[in-house]
């Protein structure tokens, strides 16, 4: 039986399979369907220092192999998280990682500081890429200057594992990856959603209240895979790959392209137990192909 454990900087994962922020709630929503502690980690809902109501309904538009969302970081704020949600999830036996967002360098820093106080949260994922938020989000993730500024500032106050989540809505993702590596990130995760749009022809109006939204699901996988591959060649820090993963084969593709770990997002909505199947599938793949450890898959693509 192959070893499945992997490391993201100082963070130890029992296996490379984690779930993506905004698609897995706080983990407990999936409790009834599976043993969530079997996952390598759970990236919980995007959290900001102040509570946010998010964007008006409608916030979702389905596409044939994915969906657009414009949730807009609805969350009850970092204080509420620390007081009410953290106690509920802190004893789940896997890495509970908080996805941190902000609208200015100061709000990112304040949120990261607040989460840093929580003993059982071993890492944060900095969302510099959310395309839904009118100020902030987008602006940081799409320029090297903006990305390094916010990562450098958060690095100063956050001593644990700092993962930076990259936006695909850029000309060259490797530039941004290099910039956040230089600014002190321990790892990068990619990709966040791709900017898209849907139109209701009967009403001649956009489907989403925000007109545009973030595309996710199987339709984005080839783009995400390409970006992971390019980034793998550009940086030394570990990569967490995501975008459209819906089965173990997709996950193995991301690892071969250079991802040390992967996240499953939208597909949890279709099959809430997909994470478990991916863990088992990676293990079977390693055994079948004679890999003693899943770590050997990372970047093992032969070109």
């Amino acid at each position: 039986m192959a070893e499945l454990n992997v490391n993201i900087g100082a963070l130890k994962l029992k296996n490379p399979v984690t779930t993506a922020s905004g698609t897995f709630g706080y983990g407990i929503e999936y409790d009834d369907f599976m043993d969530i502690s079997r996952l390598g980690g759970i990236f919980v809902k995007g959290t900001t220092i102040q509570p946010r109501e998010g964007n008006p309904y409608p916030r979702m538009a389905e596409t044939p192999a994915g969906m657009l969302n414009a949730v807009g970081l609805q969350n009850k704020g970092a204080d509420y998280f620390a007081a009410h949600i953290y106690p509920e999830i802190k004893d789940i036996d896997t890495n509970m990682i908080v996805n941190v967002s902000g609208s200015s360098v100061e709000t990112y820093v304040a949120c990261a500081e607040k989460i840093a106080e929580l003993e059982k949260i071993p890492a944060i994922e900095l969302n510099i890429s959310c395309p839904n938020v009118k100020q902030g989000g987008m602006a940081f993730g799409v320029t090297t200057a903006g990305a390094s500024e916010v990562v450098r500032a958060v690095r100063k106050v956050y001593p644990k594992t700092l993962i930076v989540k990259l936006s695909p809505n850029v000309t060259d993702i490797t530039e941004i990856a290099r910039a956040v590596e230089a600014a002190g990130a321990d790892a990068v995760s990619l990709i966040n959603t791709m900017l898209g749009m849907a139109i209701d022809v009967e009403k001649r109006r956009p489907v989403l209240s925000t007109v545009t939204g973030g595309l996710s699901g199987p339709c984005v996988k080839p783009v995400a895979l390409r970006m992971v591959w390019q980034t793998y060649k550009a940086v030394q820090i570990p990569i967490i790959g995501l975008g459209g993963i819906s089965n173990w084969k997709d996950a193995v593709e991301f690892m071969l392209a250079g991802a040390t770990a992967i996240q499953i997002g939208t597909y949890n909505f279709i099959d809430p137990t997909v994470g478990i199947q991916v863990i088992e599938g990676i293990e079977a793949y390693c055994d079948k192909h004679g890999f003693a450890s899943a770590r050997e898959l990372v970047g093992a693509l032969e070109v």
Binding site: G25, E29, G54, Y57, M60, N69, F269
Partner: peptide, 12 residues
């Protein structure tokens, strides 16, 4: 709806 179980916040 997308998830139907309170995870995605799409159905608000």
């Amino acid at each position: 709806m997308a998830c139907g179980i309170g995870a995605c916040l799409c159905c608000v």
